[in-house]
Write a protein that binds this DNA or RNA. Structure first.
Lengths: 320, 320
DNA sequence: AGCTGATCTGCAAACGATTGCGTTAGGGTG
DNA sequence: CACCCTAACGCAATCGTTTGCAGATCAGCT
């Protein structure tokens, strides 16, 4: 059927092992032989059978990437960067989507485990215990979740949240709402902790919420009732949903309430009013995660975040 | 190392072939034996080695999905649906991104070809000839590209374009611009042809353009100079970029110029002014493409599009 | 000439599953 | 009772590579 190492061996008059070596350990074969083999391989259009290779070696040259929701604009840049990094080193990337469901997350990890050299797990919702257990079966890198002993790359959301809140304080806001994400979200927890430590700020926590536009819309009424003049939302989608919801309630952004998002996603960037948001280094995270995986390094990397001030924040209406 | 079919055979007192059969052809093994084997497999936490299986069978249970740009909001819903459809049938999905580069597209197809049972190729930029050649090496389904003999699922963009233009005509517009996509784009060509056939409409074609926000911004000046009162843009990103660019030039949308996008992407949906756009059934396309691939059916499927009228279109300022 | 080492290549055993074929046991039929 | 048939299972070859080991060749040195 398809052309194998054996055909190449025949065509170039050497043993199969020599052909194998010209690909996987070129320095072990004579330069002249090597060119002869390569020529034959080229002529026959030979491509190694990866299944056979990984059966023998135990490695697959594949990586799995698992995210909560492919359609959430936060992830595509991360996936894109991860794919590019993988491809640069001759790895291929499986991508899957848990639909925010921890059980499905576990199933996916198990399903991938026999077929990849490692998994990049973004914003996992599984418990620490479950993740530690899984890490015995397959190596992985966690993104935006910190667990002792597991290699992780996290974005400094605490810093981002602090800077965002300081921005609101500087504008004159004194009472603000934190519109959080889903219950199990590590970043949501980090943000909450960071904000609690900020002095001179009265904070009301609204959540948990779905990390989508709908989540933001649903939270609008509570925000309006909370008597706040500023909001830090879990992500850009929530911020946008919230702005829309507030608009319906007759609350103007940024006139009556200032809103800050998280992510700096394309959807947020193109929204009007232009969203003030905490930029997350999603591309860097994707790239670093697969690089760490391929080098099978154990490390915990912290990536910086920064505030992008645009038009959804302003001083409160009756400034003190 | 890891637990194999042999261990399960030992533990349940049968031959390996019986174990194999309890998984791949259960009806061939006695019910009692089967439960015994399954119990042993469960206890040992056995998972079949897919590399070994595909080495023997020649099938991989993997599918490749290739898109032009992962970060373009048009694709994530398609990818999400494709992944879900694949997973439902115990397939896994490789995802890759060509960066709009035909050469990379070909490389990816070749790289995937030995490792998947088929490829979903979205909006390919390769020539018909090249695609036909490639289709001899690996089976694939084309999305939004029609080639005789290859199985495809396309969205009826011609219909969408006609309806969009009729919408403009009904509002009173007589001279409109078509802001096209990249040179090799099949959909761009279809739209162009469809629009050319519409009577009573003076159309100026502006392009090719990058299918991004930047592409739209770059086209703004030409649109402003073209003396048109309506625009059909290649996609939502281009439409949004265009609106932004026009705004800078002091042209109001929809006051001075009406703009229609394509895709109905999340980014477009959340934009202000709310974008009038042609909705594309991206999720359906993703799902259908992988279903067709898995059933290895040869077919050409046409998916409907429809116009979503929102706020970026209005009658021209001085109505006739 | 003989020895040592370095290079290069061939040999053959794996890796873990699938599958055509052969064997066995048991039941049904004439 | 002899026969055939079927269901259930074992046997062993096979998929395409990799890799430890050993043999062959040759240069350099004593």
């Amino acid at each position: 059927m398809s052309v194998t190492i054996r055909d190449v061996a025949h065509a170039s008059g050497v043993h199969v092992s020599t052909v194998s070596r010209t690909f996987s350990a070129p320095h072990l074969v004579n330069a002249e032989t090597r060119t002869r083999v390569l020529a034959a391989a080229e002529k026959l259009d030979y491509r190694p059978n990866r299944a056979a290779r990984s059966l023998k070696t135990g490695r697959t040259n594949n990586i799995g990437l698992i995210v909560a929701d492919l359609a959430n604009p936060f992830f595509p840049p991360l996936i894109k960067a991860a794919q590019a990094a993988a491809r640069r080193q001759d790895y291929h990337l499986f991508v899957a989507d848990t639909g925010e469901d921890p059980t499905e997350e576990e199933n996916l990890v198990l399903a991938f485990s026999k077929q990849v050299d490692g998994i990049v797990l973004c914003s996992p919702r599984l418990s620490n215990k479950a993740l530690e257990k899984l890490s015995e079966r397959v190596s992985f890198v966690l993104v935006n979740r910190r667990i002792r002993g597991l290699t992780t790359v996290v974005m400094d959301v605490a810093h981002g949240a602090r800077v965002a809140m300081e921005h609101l304080v500087r504008l004159g806001h004194r009472r603000v709402a934190l519109v959080t994400g889903p219950a199990g979200s590590w970043t949501s927890g980090e943000i909450r902790k960071a904000v609690a430590e900020i002095p001179g700020l009265d904070t009301v926590v609204i959540g948990p919420n779905s990390p989508t536009e709908e989540g933001g819309i649903a939270a609008a009424a509570k925000v309006a009732e909370a008597g706040v003049t500023g909001v830090l939302a879990y992500n850009d989608l929530v911020a946008i949903g919230l702005i829309g919801g507030l608009e319906v309630l007759g609350v103007d952004v940024p006139g009556d309430v200032s809103v800050i998002g998280f992510d700096d996603s394309i959807t947020g960037r193109l929204h009007r009013p232009k969203l003030t948001t905490v930029a997350m280094p999603a591309s860097d995270a994707g790239r670093m995660a697969v690089d760490l995986l391929i080098q099978s390094m154990s490390a915990t990397t912290v990536l910086e975040t920064h505030l992008v001030v645009r038009e959804s924040t302003a001083p409160p209406r009756q400034a003190p």
